[in-house]
Simulated assay, not measured.
Amino acid sequence: MKPTSLITLYISAFMCISAHASSSNVEFLNTTKVAPNLPFSQIVKAGNTLYMSGQIGINPETGKLAAGGFEGEAKQTLENIKRTLEQHNYSMSNIVKCTVMLTNINDFKAFNAIYTQYFSAPYPARSAFAVKALALDSLVEVECIGAI
């Protein structure tokens, strides 16, 4: 994709989000289980759209990355998404788009095997790409968009 096309895409996305944000139906959905020092909301509900912050494989009981390497983190990441949705009375069936970030693109096949345990056909739209690094040295991060 050309840099100018990418800039146009970002501007269009920003305008759509801005249109939602200027309306009175924007809600910032958080629970007390979110660490108070993190500068983001779990979910922002704008009209009938849910924007979820990216999730990594942090075990909520230990506050550390899940054991088990990539598979352990990937499973915990999707569990965290599911738990966050359920805390706000939504479910995985509300998800229409996922963006998957992997520190090793060779984990793509292993991620798909875990992903299909949490989503069923027809699957949400999805993008996946390799990144150099993620927060807390996580191996995978997933952010989602939902519809209600």
Rank of each mutant, 00 (worst) to 15 (best):
A113F: 11
V131I: 12
I43S: 01
A21F: 14
N104S: 13
S5F: 06
T84L: 03
N104C: 07
A13P: 00
C98N: 15
L29A: 04
V140W: 14
Y51M: 02
A135L: 14
P36K: 04
K82D: 12
L50Y: 02
H20S: 09
I17L: 14
S23R: 02
Q42I: 00
A130L: 07
G54M: 06
K132H: 15
S127H: 11
T32V: 09
N30Y: 06
T84S: 07
I43R: 01
A13D: 11
M15N: 05
F129Q: 13
I11C: 06
A67W: 04
M1F: 09
S5T: 07
E143T: 03
L139V: 04
T31E: 08
P36C: 00
A130W: 03
K132S: 15
L102R: 08
E141P: 00
N48C: 02
K33I: 05
E86Y: 06
L38P: 00
D137K: 13
A135W: 14
Q42F: 04
A19T: 02
I11N: 11
F119K: 01
P124W: 08
V142E: 10
C98L: 11
K2C: 06
A113G: 02
F119W: 05
K109R: 10
T49G: 00
K2L: 11
H88F: 12
G54E: 13
A74L: 05
K82N: 15
S18D: 06
V26A: 01
V26N: 02
A133F: 09
S127W: 07
L38E: 12
E79Q: 09
A135N: 14
L134N: 13
F108E: 15
I81F: 12
A19Q: 03
N80L: 00
P39R: 01
V140G: 11
M92R: 01
K109T: 13
Q55V: 01
A113Y: 14
I81L: 15
T4N: 09
N59Y: 10
A46S: 10
F40P: 00
A110S: 13
I145G: 04
T99N: 15
L85R: 01
M52E: 08
M101L: 15
T8G: 08
I81A: 06
A66P: 09
V26Q: 01
N89K: 14
N59S: 07
A46H: 00
N48V: 02
F70A: 03
L136P: 03
V100I: 13
Y51G: 01
S5V: 03
T4M: 05
A128Y: 11
N89E: 15
Q76N: 06
I148V: 07
M101F: 13
R83V: 01
I81S: 07
T103Q: 09
D137T: 06
S22W: 14
K64N: 14
T49Q: 01
